[in-house]
């Protein structure tokens, strides 16, 4: 990347008492891109985002955002950044429109200065018809859209989104993806976390995969897939005998049994599919490898917490 990064982190460490929530991470976020953090629950994603907003201290390392150093220049950074927190914290005492006006005021922007932008944001969030509704009268998806609109009220250079679409239905998720793509096309840098691999694959130009406070790998979705998994996956559901499993292992690059499913990773799917043609009572799914496979490969399959 030739352009100066808009966010630069070196050796960032964050402890909560004895727990090392972030253990020395380095990353550069290029301008006008979408940069994603993937990782299991408790990996340290939210903590990392809070540090770069100046909302959490760090114990070691260097962090600069838009050329401002943290923690000293946190206020200057927050003036140029918008945050969509993991949980909505809209103001229940105000209507949709009032939420936007009030939030602008915290940035020192007057009603007159932002009147036009507030109308645009209502439009952007498909909330014009709900402008005078109270926040508790909105559905979860509408509240999320309002939170995103609110994060744009200061016309930020960077928008930080912590799980922007968690808990939303697929239609709503597609609407939000569309809106985020528009923002990026306008030159806004997006930094997001997500548990949806499809979201990361569609939106992110560059990703880091985190676990236990460390970055396991980083790159574009395509690079990560090429680097860590074979291009094809054959997933088998049903009884797979040890004999069949052994044969599949010998025919493929990697073969794993998880619960009642078997995953076969390979560069040459045809021979395996031919072999399986004779196996009865098995559901065979052949698909291209995706980020989910990378994610599970890097972070393992055991449950967290």
């Amino acid at each position: 990347m030739l352009q100066e990064p808009v966010i630069r982190a070196r050796g960032l460490v964050k402890c909560f008492g004895a727990l090392r929530a972030v253990e020395g991470v380095d990353f550069d976020v290029p301008p006008a891109r979408c940069f994603g953090f993937l990782g299991p629950n408790g990996a340290g994603k939210t903590t990392t985002l809070k540090m770069l907003m100046g909302l959490a201290d760090f114990d070691a390392g260097e962090l600069s955002v838009l050329g401002f150093e943290l923690p000293a220049q946190a206020r200057a950074i927050r003036a140029r950044v918008g945050l969509v927190p993991q949980g909505d914290n809209l103001d229940p005492d105000f209507t949709v429109r009032e939420n936007l006006f009030m939030y602008a005021r915290f940035f020192g922007l007057t009603r007159r200065e932002v009147a036009g932008r507030v109308d645009e944001l209502l439009e952007f969030a498909n909330l014009t018809h709900k402008a005078d509704a109270r926040v508790d009268q909105l559905s979860g998806g509408m509240q999320r859209r309002l939170t995103i609109a609110r994060a744009l009220v200061n016309d930020p250079d960077i928008v930080v989104l912590d799980e922007p679409t968690s808990g939303l239905d697929p239609q709503m998720r597609h609407v939000i993806w569309g809106r985020l793509s528009e923002l990026r096309a306008r030159g806004v840098t997006l930094v997001l976390t997500t548990h949806y691999m499809e979201e990361a694959e569609r939106l992110c130009d560059e990703l880091v995969v985190m676990d236990h406070g460390r970055i396991l790998d980083q790159g574009s979705p395509g690079e990560l897939i090429r680097r860590h998994v074979e291009p094809d996956v054959i997933e088998l559901r049903g009884e797979v005998s040890d004999g069949v499993f052994a044969t599949l292992s010998s025919m493929s690059s990697r073969c794993e049994r998880h619960g009642t499913a078997v995953y076969v990773y390979t560069g040459a799917p045809t021979v395996i599919l031919d072999f399986l043609g004779e196996a009865d009572g098995l559901t065979v799914i052949h698909r291209r490898a995706g980020l989910e496979d990378v994610f599970l490969h890097l972070t393992g399959r055991e449950l967290r917490e």
Partner: peptide, 14 residues
């Protein structure tokens, strides 16, 4: 419960 302070802390206000 309302987390209004959290929302404000994400703006330049301290």
């Amino acid at each position: 419960p309302q987390k209004t302070f959290d929302a404000i802390m994400a703006t330049p206000l301290d």
